[in-house]
């Protein structure tokens, strides 16, 4: 999946699951859209569906620090390459 395709897919998840329309790619989601840790965990489920594989506990913990769409995209791209630490 290219970064552009992934961006489309993630923005669709935000629109449909979290009622957040077109967030800026570098907006702080927590501050601007009240995107909290419960949403983050729900987003991880959606990412698992997108990737078709389960994330490990460490991979999920890493995602708790994410704040922006660009960071989400970096995270998922790294997951696809297997470079999330």
């Amino acid at each position: 999946m290219t970064r552009e395709e992934l961006e489309k897919a993630i923005l669709a998840v935000f629109r449909e699951r979290f009622e957040i329309e077109n967030p800026g790619l570098d907006e702080n989601l927590r501050e601007e859209h009240e995107f909290d840790s419960i949403d983050a965990i729900e987003l991880l489920r959606e990412i698992e569906l997108l990737l078709g594989s389960e994330l490990s506990r460490d991979e999920k913990k890493k995602a708790m620090e994410i704040r922006t769409i660009n960071q989400i995209l970096d995270y998922v791209m790294a997951l696809e390459k297997g470079t999330v630490r």
């Binding site: 909290d36 965990i41 991880l44 913990k61 708790m64």
Partner: peptide, 16 residues
């Protein structure tokens, strides 16, 4: 209350 720092794992487990 939040998943900051060392509470990330606990929050993930509880929500799951």
């Amino acid at each position: 209350a939040t998943a900051d720092g060392r509470f990330g794992g606990l929050m993930i487990e509880r929500i799951a």
